[in-house]
Computed example of a mutant assay.
Amino acid sequence: MKTPLFALACSAFALTLSACGLTETTTPVSSGGNGEISVSSTSDACTLSATEASSGTLTFRVKNEGTEATEFYLYASDGLRTVGEVENIGPGLTRDLVVQVIAGDYVTACKPGMVGQGIRNTFTVTEPVSP
C-alpha cells in the first residue's frame, strides 16, 4: 500500500513536470517581426501576421475576435496530421500555441464554432539564413 507521503511526492513531481511544460523560455523565431505570429480568428476569417517563418520555435498568438469559441491548428503539409493546436478560445480571449518546427510546408486553420475543416491557409517554414 502506498503511503500518503508517497502520493504527495508523486503529485508534487507531476505538478513540477506540468509547470516545466508551461514555461517556454526559448525565444520564438519567426518573420513576424517581434518573435511571434499574430492570428486573428473571426467567424469568417483566419488572418496571420506572417505566412512564412524560420524553423525553430514558433509562437502563434491567437486572438478570438469572433462571437463564438474557436480553435487554431497547425497541420503538416497534408492538412491532416496535427503539429499543434489550441482549443476552446472564447470570444475576446487570446491563447498562445508554441511549437517546434522544421523547414517545410504547413497548413493553418481557425475553426470558429469548433466544427468542420476550418478556415485554412498555407504556411511556409524556411531554414534560417546564415550571417
Score class of each variant (00 low, 15 high):
Gly113Tyr: 04
Thr94Asp: 10
Gly32Ser: 03
Tyr75Thr: 06
Leu80Ile: 13
Val83Tyr: 12
Glu52Asp: 15
Thr23Tyr: 08
Phe13Gly: 13
Leu15Met: 13
Leu17Gly: 04
Ser40Gln: 15
Pro128Gly: 06
Met114Val: 03
Thr126Met: 08
Ala12Trp: 07
Thr67Ile: 11
Ala45Tyr: 06
Val83Phe: 09
Ala109Gly: 03
Thr70Trp: 02
Ser43Ile: 02
Asp96Cys: 07
Phe123Asn: 00
Gly92Ala: 09
Ser40Val: 11
Val107Met: 02
Val125Cys: 03
Pro91Thr: 09
Ala50Ile: 05
Cys10Pro: 02
Glu127Ala: 09
Val39Met: 03
Met1Phe: 14
Ala14Pro: 08
Tyr106Thr: 01
Leu22Val: 06
Leu80Arg: 12
Thr25Asp: 05
Thr23Lys: 09
Val39Tyr: 02
Gly33Ile: 01
Ser43His: 06
Phe60Asp: 14
Thr82Asn: 15
Glu36Asn: 02
Ala12Cys: 11
Thr124Met: 05
Glu24Lys: 04
Met114Glu: 06
Thr67Asp: 15
Pro28Asp: 00
Gly21Phe: 07
Thr82Trp: 08
Ser31Ala: 08
Arg120Ala: 00
Thr23Met: 08
Ala50Glu: 14
Thr26Tyr: 10
Pro131Leu: 06
Ala14Ser: 12
Gly113Glu: 00
Leu48Thr: 02
Leu8Asn: 13
Asp96Gly: 07
Ile119Gln: 00
Asp96Ala: 10
Val129Lys: 10
Ser54Lys: 08
Asp96Tyr: 10
Ser41Gln: 15
Thr3Met: 07
Val29Arg: 12
Gly79Phe: 01
Gly35Pro: 00
Ser77Val: 04
Ala53Pro: 09
Thr126Gly: 03
Gly56His: 08
Val29Asp: 04
Gly92Ser: 14
Glu65Gly: 09
Gly21Trp: 05
Ile37Val: 15
Thr57Val: 12
Phe6Gln: 14
Leu8Trp: 10
Val125Ala: 04
Phe6Gly: 06
Ile119Asp: 00
Ser41Phe: 05
Ala45Phe: 13
Val83His: 13
Ile119Trp: 01
Thr42Tyr: 07
Thr124Val: 09
Glu24Ser: 06
Thr126Ile: 13
Ala53Cys: 09
Val129Pro: 01
Val115Met: 04
Leu58Asp: 13
Val115Ala: 01
Ser31Glu: 12
Glu71Cys: 05
Gly66Gln: 13
Thr94Phe: 08
Leu17Lys: 05
Glu52Asn: 15
Arg95Cys: 06
Thr124Asp: 12
Arg61Asn: 13
Ser130His: 10
Ala69Val: 07
Cys110Gln: 01
Tyr106Val: 02
Ala76Gln: 15
Gln117Arg: 05
Ala76Lys: 15
Leu93Gln: 15
Ser130Cys: 03
Val99Arg: 08
Glu24Ile: 05
Val129Gly: 02
Cys10Gly: 09
Thr94Arg: 09
Gly92Leu: 06
Leu74Ile: 07
Val39His: 02
Cys110Lys: 01
